[in-house]
Write a protein that binds this DNA or RNA. Structure first.
Lengths: 247, 247
DNA sequence: CGGTCTCTTGACCTCTGTCAAGTAGAGTGG
DNA sequence: CCACTCTACTTGACAGAGGTCAAGAGACCG
């Protein structure tokens, strides 16, 4: 446990909250002052497991992570994607057991806050409590859009939609959009995100490239023609609530 | 606006909250005393529309409702199913615009509470505030299970899973399980729930009947062999958090 | 008892999955 | 800098779950 040094992972988290909820400066200071430890994990490691009862609130300060569930037969589905600045488990403050697995997608740096400290923060500061709820609600809204994606869009639109979403979400924390960097997932992970198979993802990426929506070099995928991508995706960002909190 | 008469829709709502969160008796009384009006809607009517800014918190006291989104091409996906006792829009207390449509599945009776009254209730009573968050989190957990359902299960399992879920959720508010009554959806609505077509739903219902998991007479569908249904569904109720709130 | 909405059914089609073999990056060690 | 290895990506042939179309049969309602 080290006290805040001023410029660390909690800053990204604060920026994320501020992107949808205004906070008074003393609340902001309280967040920065949160006692915490730092942990690094390599890609594919588990952060939390289904059935656990967690005592900590991990915050993702660099890298990507995802929530994942599987069927008895081994079918694996990624049910949420977390980006830098996202808190990974507000849920454990309110509900006893964790209902999904949380895994590192890439190598990640986590800030670990004790659940008790976080509960105190939220209990003492209504504006932060509200920001936390807004955060939870936005994640739920994204989940609903994903349901539409899985239920009613074909492979091409699904993939295009995911790439659009990731792009705009990354813009929100000023981590920069997705157009400037490679898509962080392997084709197998894309398959798990979109309810498809790796083979079909491969065909679909190729088709996106053929249409100019995406550019590839080596294993990397990068965004190409974004308006085209949005069109293919039937994408509108209202579900991300980038306007967000009620005043 | 009539004051509570003691036995009305707010009782079902209270029962629903108590099913996952204990509440002190004065909080319970405060919920029962909430000023409200009552509204009846026929099947298929809209309750809230995407893009609206709502000023009310409708509570479903009888009948069924659902949240729904569509693609530009007209593909329709039901993204949440609400049962008697469910509050339909906590979200508008925290976020400006509604990101989906809310529609009556069957004829419904609603209790309408002004958003301001509800905000005051939640602001004054921490145990209720917590119960509301737990409710939001459980809906989110159900959404994640639905993502797994759409992404990784075939038509037969998907349908079986939905029926199981509905059964156990109905048990929670003591409205009785689903085994005692007909499934409230048409085959077209089942298709919209499961990301399938009505024709394929028809084939799938027939197959469930052949296996004894379901019984039909006329247009009605009723649960048959529930253990068999659970097996086909790969169903486990942990995601419903029926143990629920942290003590 | 006529009208309308659901449900059924069959024939055919297509998107995505499966299998299996081959290729090429990216990292490692010499 | 090169060989080696592991993993991820590719590709083609084939299979199958689920979609589409269209017509007909049952329910339920006034």
């Amino acid at each position: 446990m080290n006290a805040s040094t001023g410029h660390d992972g909690l800053d990204v988290f604060l920026r994320k909250l501020l992107s949808h909820s205004p906070l008074p400066t003393d609340d902001q200071a309280a967040i920065r002052a949160l006692p915490h430890s730092v942990r690094h994990l390599d890609a594919n490691n588990y952060i939390l497991r289904e059935g656990d009862q967690s005592g900590v609130c991990p915050i993702l300060c660099s890298g990507f992570a995802y929530r994942q569930k599987s069927t008895r037969e081994g079918g694996r589905q990624i049910v949420a994607l977390k980006i830098p600045g996202d808190a990974l488990d507000f849920q454990s403050m309110y509900v006893r057991t964790i209902d999904h697995n949380l895994q590192a997608l890439t190598a990640v740096d986590l800030v670990i806050v004790a659940l008790g400290d976080f509960e105190k923060l939220v209990g003492d500061r209504p504006a932060i409590a509200r920001a936390v709820i807004v955060d939870i609600l936005i994640e739920a809204s994204i989940g609903r859009e994903w349901l539409l994606n899985l239920g009613r869009r074909n492979a091409l639109s699904r993939l295009a939609h995911l790439l659009c979403e990731l792009h705009y979400r990354l813009l929100d924390t000023r981590s920069g959009g997705l157009d400037a960097r490679d898509v962080p997932m392997t084709q197998e992970q894309l398959a798990d995100l979109l309810g498809l198979t790796p083979v079909h993802i491969n065909r679909t990426v190729k088709e996106l490239e053929r249409r100019g929506a995406v550019v590839r070099q080596g294993r990397g995928i990068r965004l190409g023609d974004i308006p085209q991508l949005r069109l293919l995706a039937d994408f509108s960002d209202t579900y991300l609530h980038r306007d967000a909190g009620v005043p």
